[in-house]
Design a protein around this nucleic acid. Structure first.
Lengths: 225, 225
DNA sequence: TAGTGGTCTAGACCACCTC
DNA sequence: AGGTGGTCTAGACCACTAG
């Protein structure tokens, strides 16, 4: 297994045993250990110095939402031990905008389903979320097959579509962005995400807009050279 | 070399030769090819399907600023073929805030240097940038050693400090954020970044706040499962 | 100089896709 | 059934760090 290591005892900022030692300890080859260490490095939990060794990072903001990995809103809220909910769900069908048709790689006249909703945590409005799904992907009966909660779950269980990655644009909220009153009345600072979600074959599946309260959720990105 | 492949002929959405074939073509081992392919996958240029093959992604927004990698503002502006400049540079020394001392892992009474500046592209104000550097890192003579333009360059050439990564927080601009008039008068939508920069040993080197015009620069993140 | 991480190799086995 | 990617191995050489 390439995922043996979970930093059992080494929870401080200290030096790890050498790759050779680790390989012997876990009874695997050095290359396998190297893959595991590389994985931890990419997660930001470990760093290495050539000729010297591997070290556990002193501190990493693991909390909050790390944008490097794709996580659903549902998961995000559950992590913070709050009860997830939604209000004011709207449903309709329209033709995509030119921009949307391009991003979703569909014909400008192919209709799309739009789901508007306000997602809540502990009863508080948290995110205004809008999903745009091509009818060519989810079929005409999408309103019947759609279920509350995580859209990613719904796609996986009902359509056998696995979202593998997303291209996310981070945007400042503009005056012309239309906002539901329930979110506006909070007076909270807001951030907007525009995301195209892809499956394992790199085909665009759906588009989402999220306008999120930045007083409740914080967003981090780990950027490497 | 683990970086042989640059998609020579395969510029469309097509299937790549198998790992075995690639290995023979380039005269290297299969594991080496696999490392190169994994790298391309992580860059989002290629995806793989087990039992089937590797494929070139149809389209990737390589343009604009990809937040997955750490790039300096200087580079960003140069990429867009504009002339980089700066105006209203201010310099001062103060004690860090509690939050700053924590992030920089310094004593709350250790002074920090602060450099305020407005960075311009083609003469237009683009970014209000504030850097916070501990005196314990850059020394008392920092004002003398500091040079215009890229701080990352300055640190590398004058201090032999290489920034290896950053932890970036994306923030909505709040009413209480103080903004230079030159940026405010543009009326542009604004985004704020708060970044802690680390060296190869994962030690925090400096902190930066950037308030950027989101009508000119767009920000993307590739998020994987 | 000894020990470390970085890179590469040739070979093996398995699970999966495609035919 | 044959080809593919995913995983792992045992061994090698090099460049760098540290004492």
């Amino acid at each position: 297994m390439s995922r043996l290591i979970g930093e059992d005892g080494y929870a401080d900022g200290k030096k790890l045993p050498s790759e050779k030692e680790l390989a012997e300890t876990y009874g695997v080859s050095r290359e396998t250990i190297r893959k595991a260490l590389k994985h931890l490095t990419q997660l930001g939990r470990v760093y290495s110095i050539r000729g010297s060794g591997h070290y556990v990072r002193h501190w990493v903001p693991q909390m909050e939402s790390t944008l490097n990995r794709l996580t659903s809103i549902t998961e995000l809220i559950k992590q913070s031990q709050l009860v997830e909910g939604e209000m004011e769900v709207h449903f309709f069908k329209r033709v995509p905008t030119k921009d949307e048709a391009e991003l979703l790689q569909i014909h400008p006249l192919d209709p799309v389903f739009v789901v508007d909703r306000i997602r809540t945590a502990g009863g508080e409005p948290l995110i205004f979320n809008q999903n745009v799904l091509p009818q060519s992907v989810v079929g005409e009966d999408f309103p019947l097959r759609y279920e509350k909660g995580s859209l990613l779950n719904c796609l996986r269980t009902r359509y056998r579509i696995d979202i593998a990655e997303a291209m996310t644009e981070v945007l400042a909220v503009r005056a012309e962005d239309l906002l539901p009153y329930r979110l506006k009345e909070t007076g909270a600072p807001l951030l907007k995400f525009k995301q195209v979600h892809y499956d394992a074959k790199a085909l665009p599946i759906f588009l989402s807009y999220d306008i999120m309260r930045n007083d409740v959720i914080r967003f981090f990105i780990r950027r490497v050279m």
